[in-house]
């Protein structure tokens, strides 16, 4: 048992941090722990969590996906335009939007694994291209409102439980299965730990990379579709907050940003922490600008607290104190 604890220390820390944050916030803000408010928070976390699912796979594999904001945005715009407010066309609109997201992810993967483009450049470029494409396509105008079915998926409930949370948990089970029980997961961790050793060991590196980025494109697109249901329509720039939060959720969840370690179970805690933070800050009565500054700083500190580098730093300090005592 203690070995399991040691191996998943980073993930446990993330959950511990989440609980501490929850307690602190409830002091500042009355009614914070009320059922309805908690439910809203978990719903908001689900959007981050779904985008961060693919991001988790990409980061564990040693890459990073900066194209999520506009993959998300494109899927949202495509679905609302195709559906035009009614449920019928969703039958083909949703599959098309998801396939589009997956395709963009696959292109990212091929560019990186086959042509050796660095992940940051490849995905950043794709992000900008998509942004341009959607501007040209829509002329910058807002789109039709989200059809009822999507609104149900995003904000509806089954009993007390939001539909999107059920969806999120199903995805979490799938992600856990892939990471912990599948050959793909084993290859992904190996590749993120050392691309050279993975190649020397016969790991199908091209396939693994393409699959990881495809997953990321797929989950970003899914989050985009669902988000239209929450905001009632698609608008340009709706994906922008998810670049930072998807990466931060993975890092807070205990993954090494350099790859090779981490788990989606940690990312879930990361998504929750980020949402609680957004809830805490308005309670402090800050202006919008000040809010963003505090948000950024808090994320920076949280991520570095969760990172191995800092825990190494602390253990060095602890050791040098111990050494002084010896001498």
């Amino acid at each position: 048992m203690s070995r399991v604890l040691a191996r998943h220390r980073a993930i446990l820390l993330a959950y511990l941090g989440m609980i501490v944050l929850l307690v602190i916030t409830s002091f500042f803000s009355e009614g914070f722990l009320a059922g309805s408010h908690l439910r809203t928070m978990v719903m908001l976390s689900a959007f981050i969590g779904i985008v961060a699912l693919g991001q988790t796979f990409v980061i564990i594999g040693g890459g990073i996906d900066l194209s999520v904001p506009w993959v998300l945005n494109c899927a949202a715009v495509l679905v609302t335009l195709m559906a035009n407010g009614s449920d019928g066309p969703l039958l083909y609109a949703i599959p098309i939007a998801l396939a589009g997201g997956a395709l963009v992810g696959a292109i990212n993967g091929f560019g990186i694994a086959l042509f050796g483009v660095p992940p940051i450049i490849m995905t950043l470029a794709v992000n900008v291209i998509l942004q341009g494409g959607i501007l040209v396509y829509t002329g910058g105008a807002p789109t039709a409102s989200a059809p009822p079915l999507i609104q149900y998926l995003a904000v509806g409930r089954i009993g007390p439980v939001p539909v999107i949370v059920i969806l999120w948990m199903l995805l979490a089970v799938l992600a856990t299965l892939l990471l912990s029980k599948s050959a793909f997961g084993r290859y992904l961790y190996a590749q993120g730990t050392s691309a050279t050793v993975a190649e020397f060991s016969g790991v199908p590196t091209l396939r693994v990379t393409v699959l990881a980025y495809t997953l990321s494109g797929l989950t970003a697109a899914l989050a985009g579709i669902l988000l239209t249901g929450y905001t009632a329509q698609a608008y340009l720039g709706m994906g922008d907050p998810y670049l930072f939060t998807s990466i931060a959720a993975v890092a807070i969840g205990g993954a090494s940003i350099l790859g090779g370690s981490g788990h989606y179970i940690g990312t879930i805690a990361g998504a929750l922490v980020l949402t609680i933070l957004t809830g805490l800050l308005p309670a402090l009565n800050l202006s919008n600008g000040a809010l963003l500054i505090v948000y950024g700083v808090v994320i920076l500190v949280t991520v570095s607290l969760a990172s191995e580098a800092l825990s190494d730093f602390f253990s060095i300090i602890a050791r040098s104190i111990g050494r002084k005592r010896d001498a």
Binding site: S194, V197, G260
Partner: peptide, 29 residues
């Protein structure tokens, strides 16, 4: 150290890295 082993992974994962298909069925280990 840099071509043969994943130093931060277990002995088990290192031993079987090249033969994962030998104990995989339908993609599951």
């Amino acid at each position: 150290r840099s071509h043969g082993l994943l130093l931060t992974k277990s002995v088990r994962e290192n031993l079987t890295l090249s033969v994962i298909p030998r104990f995989t069925r339908f993609g599951l280990l």
